[in-house]
Design a protein around this nucleic acid. Structure first.
Length: 277
DNA sequence: CAACCGACCTGTTCGC
DNA sequence: TGCGAACAGGTCGGTT
């Protein structure tokens, strides 16, 4: 479910709400959500009593550095997977099904990790550790210019969409935003990365920033009004700006020809065969 | 290195 | 109305 804009929306809200708050209660029941911590009681003991320093993000991972954890300071890392939500609730609010981890704060609020499909996870990592070492530059904050992107693209023969979604190449882009970025850049999903002209690299660079930036402004995409929610339970609004994703057979908003959907590597890709080349 | 596949899960939607 | 199949924003590991 959540890609960079959704995770960034969660990050911004949590970074406004949590720093300075102390964790006074931990419920750590989710075996799969805490799969890196076979000893969940130990995880709870390590987190209890710690104070949130800040909330940052790298790609689709949320990073919550803590001071005062069991064995020195560590970072709480959260990945939402396909169906994960982080909700900031009053302690007395009813508990949703599939709530796997609850952090109770010293202001009577709780941060709850809810995740029906359990593809997401939560774990503690050493501060500044190598837990996320496989990630490439963050697609929103680390791309310094179109030459930087040109350098990354050089020598890559992969298809553009696969490359944009490869978290080792650029961190944060998933199935929705890769399609939206490539449509805005007027590039086909199956173009080999190494064949881009300088003008095309520039279009791709601009499109990455514009699509992700606009999606963050609108607090992400909530496709079926049930899935992605921000920490207050509200949906995003960027789905109303989608130009290709979920629009099979609908007219392209640029050239009015029908949008086409293909399945590759088990997932849907939407594009306009006329204006993407 | 690149492309594809199944696996990991639950919930919702679609077609008969 | 019922029921199985298909599908869903992600990632990993294995195979070709």
């Amino acid at each position: 479910m959540p890609e960079l804009p959704e995770v960034e929306t969660v990050r911004r809200d949590l970074d406004r709400e949590l720093p300075g708050r102390r964790i006074v209660r931990v419920v750590a029941t989710g075996v799969r959500s805490l799969r890196r911590h076979p000893d969940r009681a130990q995880f709870a003991a390590d987190v209890r009593g710690a104070t949130v320093v800040a909330v940052s993000r790298r790609g689709k991972y949320l990073l919550v550095p803590l001071v005062g954890t069991g064995e020195g300071d560590r970072t709480l890392v959260v990945h939402l997977g396909m169906s994960g939500q982080l909700l900031l609730n009053a302690a007395e609010a009813p508990m949703l099904a599939h709530t796997h981890v609850v952090l109770g704060f010293d202001d009577k609020r709780e941060l709850r990790f809810v995740d029906p499909r359990t593809f997401g996870e939560i774990f503690l990592a050493p501060l500044g550790g190598a837990a996320l070492g496989h990630l490439g530059p963050d697609a929103l904050t680390d791309l310094k210019g179109w030459n930087h992107l040109a350098d990354l693209l050089a020598l890559r023969t992969t298809k553009l969409k696969a490359l944009l979604m490869d978290q080792r190449f650029l961190a944060g882009i998933g199935n929705i935003y890769s399609d939206e970025i490539l449509h805005r850049a007027r590039l086909r999903w199956d173009r080999s990365a190494a064949t881009l002209t300088p003008a095309e690299v520039r279009r791709l660079f601009r499109s990455i920033g514009e699509v992700l930036g606009a999606a963050v402004e609108l607090r992400g995409s909530s496709l079926d009004d049930q899935q992605y929610r921000d920490v207050f339970g509200a949906i995003g609004a960027y789905q109303g700006q989608h130009r290709v994703y979920g629009r099979e057979a609908a007219p392209c908003l640029r050239c009015h020809r029908p949008i086409v959907r293909v399945r590759t590597a088990g997932r849907s890709t939407f594009f306009c065969p006329r204006c993407q080349a």
